[in-house]
């Protein structure tokens, strides 16, 4: 087999070994209930929203910026999109357009502040999280900051439409990250911003674009969130972060998998794996609290193992070598 093919196969195996183990475990633990065609579709469908949220977070994360306000942006854009859709009677297209536009405005504002104030993004994001959580209440006091859409608009969250939305989002994300100068520049900047700056990259401009494109995906996530819930209330006291918790867990796993495969693909596989785990635990009847603990512990062990794997491999090799050297030394002495 040509070495390139072999290399590709090895990387594919490494990428899929953990997801495969998860699937196998839950296939056995749920006695096959989790892998009926319907269940698989449910898993895939439930993976779309966190996957899109991760797409919103990824570019900023590549630059070392963890934007915690993204959850608040998703919910705010859901509410704004839902209300404007109702007001204008524009249906699902309206929901998408208004959600995306509002999210882009919000994240662009976050980026603008990040560039101008030169304050750590953590501080800005936490502050803006509260602002974005309160924003729907200011804009729509009559609805008390919430939005309700009719059940017929739930079709956006149903198959096949949700998969179409995902396919389009993924295609855009993949192309942006891998095939554009923007994607390359982000990776360069994320690697060493001083060197990138010296090489002529306009750092502030790239960061601003990062936030703006993040808003595009956050808006799509907002529209999906609205469609799948039907009613979204304005969150308070950082509760918007729980919306994106599953996405965070998937993100860490995705970063781990991206060592073996393209980052966009790694993230999608990661999200599907985490959703499979969630569904499997639900099917097994495990309480929500314990589910979160199990998912976190599994992730913890996985990341600890992968992070220490080179040391383990080296340790084994050293032990072997040490034994051989000792034997040789004994031979020399006896000789």
């Amino acid at each position: 087999m040509p070495s390139k093919m072999k290399n590709l196969l090895m990387r594919a195996l490494k990428t899929l070994v953990f997801p495969a183990c998860v699937c196998l475990f839950f296939a056995i633990a749920t006695r096959g209930k989790l892998f009926t065609s319907r269940s698989v579709l449910v898993i895939l469908r439930q993976s779309v929203l966190p996957a899109v949220v991760i797409m919103a977070m990824m570019p900023n994360l590549t630059l070392g910026m963890m934007d915690f306000s993204i959850g608040a942006v998703v919910i705010a854009s859901a509410i704004i999109g839902g209300n404007l859709m109702n007001m204008t009677g524009t249906g699902i297209p309206g929901l998408l357009v208004f959600s995306v536009l509002s999210a882009i405005i919000l994240t662009s504002f976050t980026g603008f502040l990040n560039n101008k104030l030169r304050v750590p993004i953590l501080v800005i994001a936490l502050g803006l999280m509260l602002v974005y959580e309160a924003l729907p209440k200011l804009l729509f006091p009559g609805n008390d900051g919430g939005a309700i859409i009719k059940v017929k608009y739930a079709m956006l969250a149903q198959q096949p439409y949700i998969f179409i939305v995902f396919a389009v989002s993924f295609a855009v994300f993949y192309i942006l990250v891998n095939k554009t100068t923007y994607g390359h520049n982000i990776r360069a900047l994320g690697g060493n911003d001083e060197l990138a700056r010296r090489a002529g990259l306009n750092v502030d401009k790239i960061k601003q674009i990062c936030f703006t494109t993040s808003g595009f995906f956050a808006g799509i996530a907002g529209a999906l969130y609205m469609a799948s819930n039907g009613q979204v209330n304005s969150p308070t006291a950082f509760s918007s972060m729980t919306t994106v918790m599953d996405a965070f867990l998937g993100l860490f796993l995705g970063i781990f998998l991206s060592r073996f495969c393209n980052v966009a693909i790694g993230l999608v596989i990661a999200v599907v794996t985490m959703t499979t785990m969630s569904n499997g635990l639900v099917t097994m009847g495990l309480d929500a609290t314990y589910r979160d603990i199990v998912k976190s512990v599994v992730l913890f062990f996985l990341l600890a193992f992968s992070g220490n794997q080179p040391y383990i491999v080296r340790m084994r090799a050293n032990r072997k070598r040490g034994a051989a050297a000792d034997r040789e030394y004994q031979k020399q002495i006896s000789a």
């Binding site: 100068t181 390359h184 520049n185 990776r187 360069a188 994320g190 690697g191 060493n192 060197l195 990138a196 090489a199 002529g200 990259l201």
Partner: peptide, 18 residues
């Protein structure tokens, strides 16, 4: 003076991808 997170070609042409 090189950026570890990208490939060699991208390092050589950083800032000139346009």
């Amino acid at each position: 003076g090189t950026i570890g997170s990208i490939d060699v070609a991208s390092n050589i042409f950083t800032g000139r991808l346009e």
